[in-house]
Design a protein around this nucleic acid. Structure first.
Length: 599
RNA sequence: GGACCUGUGGUGCAGCUCGGAGUGCACGCCGCCCUGUCAAGGCGGAGGUCGCGGGUUCAAAUCCCGUCAGGUCCGCCA
């Protein structure tokens, strides 16, 4: 702020007394950003700073130097030779002038002008970069990460990280607007013996004892509600020591929020506002209101709890059509099918691979039918009767040349299998198509039982059951819905939230259902339950991943593209070499002794 | 823990199926030439333990085994 104001008032940095330049990018060393120099400045003597993007020399009398800074590229014309190489850091003072007729460059934002009569000052030399810094060739990611500081100079990385900043700014503004208070919660927290693997921090002052880095500020934000903060948010770093993926890093950033005296609808409203504001800021277009679907509907229609709504291939239910089937492969509690448009051309090898994929997911098999002019074609085609045949041929308005895939199995398994095949066959790239937001509500309270027969919480043990299902918590727990909800964008789970339990009686019943006795509950969540005894307001919250949201806005398949210094899939940092051994002295101070690696 | 893909001068690729001299292409780099280029152009040049180790073979970038690194996915992510 001070810098901009100062820059706005001073004379040109070159001291030559050119016309006063007013902009917020001026500093003591420069007057303008390269990419902002236009015809309005013709005649001005100005100074720019940046990196040499390219040099084109024409003998000893003329050289062109393209200077690049974060805003773009400006061509400087040097009369005479100049000893600069690509990526040298330079400060060039020159006179803005119109380019001669026929030498304008339409591909350059500053292509109508150039800097003439240049004085070139080399601020720093540079070795040739180990890989090209333009976006024309895709360099191996390991190399890019080893020299991330160079990779960040590339236009696409500049855009991605600035996009991310835009998203953050919009989210903060939306939360502030909605009366939320930003509170920072600790990075050093207490171990909790459940859930995602935590990163552990040994205590120097307390031998044999440890902090952990939070996998989310979940408990802390609920305590803030007890603390009367009413509406809290934080752009929070979360850490999980779980295996990495294209959409998962050890550390990731969430917009984390919690509010008191609210319902699920209130929270969904807060989050929608923030996400849609961010979308508008990032894409320039405000998406329409976010649609809602129950978990049950999502499973039935898309075979997943995070449907990608950009394309069809919706699951059809053929259970009734096969109720009395004589085909053994189709006598199952549920028969589901999808249509693959133009799928009849898929090779046998591809179909076999899909069958393998289906079996890998636990399905007993996969039946496929080509729709040919002669009727159904496929291994099971001659076993189905006429009515069944009509049902298959009628899936989703199937036409000649299409393929219909059928899975008969337990309901959830049949749905999930076809859901996975639907994605394998139809999912567009991240960069394609519209942004289709979706709320998925009414998640089940429990996702099954563990080996001891205890129920497993689908979300976390403080999630409030659906009020209509409270009566069956003990008698039919697996059918109990919860007040948990997810936000989905183009098949990516952006985040999830829930109404929390604030009443001791309901919490006790849920703990009992989960097989958590009083002593265990006290040991694990004692301080939270203790806090709740002093007057816990009804509260609910949400958290969603900013890395994922930004990646989709940027149209990249991988969140590493929107993170300044990410880890590789094996969790290493190619630049710093982390993780690394520490010295014996450090180990001793932390009361640690390495254990020989088991082989 | 598992499956699959990739690894060839600084970078991007081809060569690998069917073994025969480190062969090729593009970019970059170095030198020289060039007064309007902009992915400048012309001429010349340097640069390689074909990720690493072992095996098969008269002979391995190429086939086999192991291993390391990177990626995608499954498990995992209450």
């Amino acid at each position: 702020m001070a810098r901009g104001a100062r820059g706005g008032r001073r004379r040109g940095a070159n001291g030559l007394g050119g016309p006063r330049v007013t902009n917020f990018d001026a500093t003591s060393l420069r007057d303008r950003l390269c990419g902002t120099v236009g015809t309005d400045l013709i005649g001005s003597r100005i100074t720019v700073c940046g990196w040499v993007a390219r040099r084109r020399e024409h003998g000893e009398h003329l050289a062109f130097v393209d200077v690049r800074d974060r805003s773009g590229i400006l061509q400087a014309v040097v009369d005479g030779s100049v000893d600069v190489r690509p990526e040298y850091v330079v400060r060039i003072t020159g006179t803005v002038r119109e380019r001669p007729e026929g030498t304008r460059n339409e591909r350059l934002a500053t292509g109508d002008v150039e800097l003439g009569e240049c004085e070139v000052e080399v601020l720093a030399g540079a070795e040739p970069p180990p890989f090209p810094l333009d976006d024309r060739v895709e360099t191996d990611e390991a190399v890019r990460l080893r020299y991330r500081y160079l990779d960040l100079r590339r236009e696409s990385m500049q855009e991605n990280l600035r996009l991310r900043a835009t998203v953050n700014r919009a989210l903060r503004a939306a939360m502030d607007d909605q009366g939320f208070c930003e509170v920072e919660t600790p990075l050093l927290w207490a171990p909790t013996p459940e859930g995602a693997r935590e990163f552990v921090v040994p205590s120097r002052l307390h031998p044999g004892e440890y902090y952990v880095l939070p996998q989310s500020p979940q408990i802390a934000k609920q305590l803030l509600m007890v603390g009367g903060f009413d509406r809290y948010y934080q752009i929070a770093r979360c850490l999980r020591d779980e295996d990495l993926r294209a959409d998962r890093q050890f550390e990731f950033t969430q917009l984390d929020l919690e509010a008191s005296f609210v319902t699920q609808d209130d929270v969904m409203h807060f989050v929608s506002r923030a996400v849609l504001d961010a979308a508008e800021a990032a894409t320039g277009e405000r998406p329409s209101e976010i649609v809602t679907m129950t978990w049950r509907e999502a499973l039935d229609l898309y075979g997943t709890d995070k449907p990608d709504l950009r394309f069809g291939m919706v699951l059809q239910d053929l259970t009734a059509d096969f109720a009395g089937t004589s085909v053994k492969a189709f006598s199952a509690p549920s028969v589901k099918a999808i249509r693959v448009p133009e799928g009849a051309t898929l090779t046998r090898a591809r179909l076999d691979a899909l069958t393998e994929q289906a079996k890998g997911l636990g399905a007993k098999g996969l039946a496929w039918f080509r729709l040919t002019p002669e009727g159904l074609d496929g291994p099971l085609a001659r076993f189905v009767n006429e009515a069944e045949s009509r049902a298959i041929a009628g899936v989703d308005g199937a036409r000649e040349g299409d393929l219909v895939l059928v899975v008969a199995d337990e309901h959830a398994l049949a749905c999930r299998t076809l859901g996975a095949l639907r994605l394998a066959l139809g999912a567009p790239p991240v960069s394609a198509g519209p942004h289709r937001y979706l709320w998925v509500t009414e998640f089940p309270m429990f996702e099954g039982r563990d080996e001891d027969g205890n129920l497993v919480a689908a979300h976390h043990p403080f999630t409030m059951p659906h009020p209509d299902d409270l009566d069956t918590l003990e008698t039919d727990p697996l059918s109990v819905r919860s007040q948990a909800y997810d936000l989905v964008l183009n098949g990516w789970e952006l985040g999830s939230g829930s109404v929390r339990i604030h009443r001791a009686d309901i919490q006790e019943r849920v703990f009992r259902a989960l097989g958590i006795d009083e002593a265990t509950a006290e040991a694990r969540f004692g301080f939270l339950l203790g806090a709740f005894r002093y007057g816990a307001p009804p509260h609910a919250g949400f958290a969603f991943g900013i890395d994922r949201l930004t990646a989709i806005f940027a149209g990249v398949e991988n969140i590493r593209e929107v993170i300044a210094f990410p880890k590789t899939q094996s969790g290493t940092d190619q630049m710093t070499g982390a993780p690394k051994a520490i010295t014996g002295r450090q180990l001793r101070e932390l009361h640690l002794a390495p254990v020989p690696k088991a082989r």
